[in-house]
């Protein structure tokens, strides 16, 4: 894993997420570019690197977002750990696997985040929130083919196919 490449990718994602994503929204939903990065590095790297990469990704999202600082770091580390722990059971190189895992875990992450917000502010509407979570997760999963291709160009993705552990 090349850390300089990772940091450059993270920087570009942060810039795109906070300035450009707004222009391709579907209602209140915009794709979360950070999440495919979490899934990609959870598929690719060992536990220590995965945790550190997800912590940096979460901190980056926290920096560009309102709310409790560090909350995304905790959620991304937890998500990355779960994906990492059963990645050997998956055929990680297949696009459908990547899209499905991104969708499922993005959905779970958004639900947990929404619960945290609901507890904090008591102001979320259940039906609208669930619809928004579904749209966001679907939109994020749809961005996977492009993002994984870009990440794969900069990182050694052969590990996704051949190396165990």
């Amino acid at each position: 894993m090349r850390w300089l490449t990772f940091l450059c990718i993270l920087f570009c994602i942060s810039l795109f997420q906070s300035t450009q994503m707004h222009w391709i929204n579907l209602g209140p939903a915009v794709p979360d570019l950070y999440f495919p990065l979490v899934v990609f590095y959870s598929f690719l790297t060992d536990m220590k690197r995965n945790t550190f990469a997800n912590w940096l990704t979460g901190m980056s999202k926290d920096l560009f977002s309102e709310g409790s600082f560090g909350i995304n770091s905790v959620f991304f580390i937890a998500t990355g750990f779960f994906i990492w722990s059963f990645r050997e059971m998956l055929y990680r190189g297949h696009l459908v696997t990547q899209i499905l895992i991104t969708f499922i875990f993005s959905f779970i992450y958004n639900v947990v985040y929404a619960i945290h917000l609901a507890i904090s502010f008591h102001s979320l509407c259940l039906s609208e929130t669930i619809w928004m979570i579904f749209c966001c997760s679907l939109y994020t999963a749809m961005s996977v083919p492009v993002l994984f291709w870009i990440f794969g160009r900069f990182q050694p993705t052969q590990k996704l196919f051949f190396i165990q552990g």
Partner: peptide, 13 residues
């Protein structure tokens, strides 16, 4: 010059 990175928070820079 910027929007919130989270889907659940609404802020601008």
């Amino acid at each position: 010059v910027g929007y919130d990175a989270s889907n659940f928070r609404k802020s601008i820079t």
